[in-house]
Every structure is written in structure tokens, then in C-alpha cells.
Write a protein that binds this DNA or RNA. Structure first.
Lengths: 205, 205
DNA sequence: GACTCTATCTACCAGCTGTTAGATATAGAT
DNA sequence: ATCTATATCTAACAGCTGGTAGATAGAGTC
């Protein structure tokens, strides 16, 4: 009978993650069927279920393998990039790092944006994950002694500054879903200029 | 036999729009079934279809009855609000109007945010509507001689300023889906302060 | 070469979903 | 009262979806 293509779990798992990321980024979790993902990978639907258990397992796989693995402040501070001195890390420097990191993976950003909004539904497998995410993110940020320019108006309101920055990024990412196309890095640099309005700082990055 | 409740098309249609808006705002278009909407209205599923034709018709109803009917620049300029002089309309004044208008209808904002992102899927009934929306919105804005403060850095880049403002609003709206809860108007005022950094202007509004 | 493990398959199913066909009852007009 | 228009219902269906059961075959091990 026909030759069955048997691959190592590592490779297959990688294929599944990539196929799922691409499809979910376009059609969302509810909009994608297991058969679609399986077809793209080149296996049968039960074959896919063998790896993910059930449909929600697809998302666990994505979160585990794609989210929160790089692009975090920790990674930035260990990256040795300019302004990444662990003693006094530059907040805008990190945001540039984050934005450039994301801009280089538009498909992942799209996936993130789509899932984040789809998860408003309390029955969505990632509902809790996303609803509580701002708290976890802030907790992550607050562990570092970010350096802030002394002249900044709201230098005292670090949470607000970070929150607005992330809101701006989210807004840009939503805009990226529509036309005419814009450039993520360019658009962020405009926000950076008004969120961190200190020319001499920007020269340092 | 059981008493059948027969209502005027206007009333029924209104009920359907409200039920659909609420449900779609939580579960999205794909996540909601016609039966759910029908149940909430209190009619049968074919009874609902009598009004909307098919499932996509639900969305047409929403767009027709809820979207783009108020909150547009035209409405603002006719509203007689402070700064709404049709000769020299104030851009930040309109944005305040828009934000306050939206903040007063959080459910509608949620619906809009959810549908906007869900419609990335090319097979989504509102795909074209949302993908091409920025162009239409800009066209709408460009019909008015918005007054801009002379000292503003990018006074020459009106499209960019408007685009950033709308991105900021979108970002806030995404953040509104998560916890801890924030205040739409407060958060916008922070962005206004950096997008339109002219104290004497803000005193005018 | 025989054996074991498991990745992968085929076959199947129950439940849900959108949609249709046709019957029925209700409100308003005559 | 009767009639008409139509809002609303019940019944039914085909397609798809996630998930299960059991068979099969490929790859490494001894």
C-alpha cells in the first residue's frame, strides 16, 4: 500500500506549529479546522490529534513554542545591545528592540493580534491568558530598574508610560491588518518621539 | 396552542440588532450561532432568518444600524459643540468628541474591536469593509479644513497625525478588553497631551 | 531477522450549524 | 366577520467538526 511518511516528533511538532501559526493568524482559532491544519502539514486529522490531544492543545503548543520565549525584557537585557546595561536599562531602547523584533516576524504579530482579540470570549481557551496578561507583563517590567530621562513630564508614572507604549504598539498592530500598508518600525518611531521626547536620549540608542 | 408573539418589524429588527451586537461583541461572528441570537430575541432560528436572510445579513444589519451613523466628523461639525466651527474645526476637539462618544457605548466599541480583527480572514463577510476602511476614513476627514496649531512639529503631516490618533484609540480599545480595567477617556487624554502638545489649545476645548 | 514502540492511517460517529420547505397564526384592513 | 399579508413556527436535512476506536506500518534495537 502507499508509503506512509513517518517523521520524528520534533520535526513534526515544528511543522504543526508553523502551519497552525500561519492559519490561525488568518482565520483565528474558531475559524480554523483541525483538518485544515493537518492538510497543510501533510498528515491526517487524527494524526494531528495524536500530537495536540484536542483542538485547544494547538494553542498550548503555540503559546509554549512561540510566545514569551524571546522579545521579553530579560532577553533584551542579556542581548548586549546598546543601552542594555543591566544596571540602568533604557526603556525606549528596549521598546525599539521589541518593535524591531516584532517587525521581523509579521506573521507572529498577526497571530498574536488576532488571538488576543478573539480571546475576549470567556469560552476561548486563551481567555484567561490574555485577560490577565497586562498584569503579568507589568510584573515582568517592574523587576528591572529602568532608567528614565529626568526631564520627562510623567517620569514618576512608569506604569502609565509603559502602558501607553504597549497600547500604541497594539494600535499599530491592528492598523497593520488593514490598508494602505504602513511600516511598523517607522510608525513606532513616531510614537517614540512623543512618548520619549528627549532628542539627546534618542541619539544614544 | 401556544400564543405566538408577533411584533412589528421595526421593533423586532431593533431587538435583533441589540441582541446581535451584544453576542457578537463577546464571541465574534464565527463564535455566535443564529440560534443563540434567536434565543436571546425570543424567536425561532428560522424566524430570525426571516429578517436577516442569512448569517452574513446579521452583520449588514449591524453595519447599517450601528456603524458610521454618528461619531463621524460630519455629525460633530453639526453638533454645535465648542470648537466645532465648520470654518475651522479643531481636530483635537473632534477627537475628544469621538472618544467620549465611544466611551459612552462600551459595548459597541467592543463589538467594533472584535469584528475589526476577526475580519482579517479573507472569507469574513466584513473583510473588505474593514481592510479598506482606513482609506474611506481618511477621505472623510480630508473633506474638512481642520485647524492645526501653528507650532506643531508635524503640522504639515495631517494624515500621519490622524493615523496615529486612530491607532492610539485602537490600542486603548484593545487594552479595554483586558484587566486591570482602564478608563477610555482618561487614557485618551494622555495621548492627546502628547499628540497635541499645546496647553493653550487644550484650554480652549 | 524478529521484536517493540508509536507515528500514522481508515472508518466511524454524534452533535451542531446554516438553510430550506411548508404550515400556521396574528395584526390590520375591508 | 372575513380577508390578506406576513411574521413566526415546526420539521427536516446536508455538511462539517471535533473526537474515538482500532488497524497498520515504519524505524530503531537486540
Amino acid at each position: 500500500m502507499p508509503t506512509r511518511i513517518r517523521m520524528s516528533p520534533q520535526v513534526r511538532r515544528r511543522q504543526i506549529v508553523e502551519a497552525a501559526a500561519e492559519l490561525l493568524g488568518e482565520k483565528g482559532y474558531k475559524g480554523v479546522t483541525l483538518r485544515e491544519v493537518a492538510d497543510r502539514v501533510g498528515i491526517s486529522q487524527p494524526g494531528l490529534l495524536h500530537y495536540v490531544g484536542n483542538k485547544a492543545g494547538l494553542l498550548s503548543l503555540l503559546v509554549t513554542d512561540l510566545y514569551d520565549v524571546d522579545g521579553t525584557p530579560d532577553v533584551f537585557l542579556r542581548s548586549g545591545r546598546r543601552g542594555s546595561d543591566p544596571g540602568h536599562p533604557h526603556l525606549p531602547a528596549y521598546f525599539r528592540f521589541l518593535v524591531e523584533h516584532n517587525a521581523a516576524q509579521p506573521q507572529l504579530v498577526k497571530l498574536y493580534t488576532v488571538l488576543q482579540t478573539e480571546a475576549v470570549d470567556p469560552s476561548h481557551p486563551l481567555h484567561d491568558y490574555f485577560v490577565t496578561r497586562p498584569s503579568r507583563v507589568w510584573e515582568s517590567y517592574s523587576r528591572f530598574p529602568w532608567a528614565l530621562p529626568p526631564g520627562l513630564d510623567w517620569a514618576g508614572d512608569m506604569p502609565g508610560l509603559i502602558r501607553m507604549s504597549l497600547e500604541a504598539m497594539d494600535g499599530i498592530q491592528v492598523r497593520l491588518l488593514h490598508l494602505p500598508l504602513i511600516d511598523y518600525v517607522d510608525e513606532w518611531s513616531r510614537f517614540e518621539a512623543i512618548l520619549f521626547p528627549l532628542p539627546q536620549w534618542r541619539g544614544l540608542l
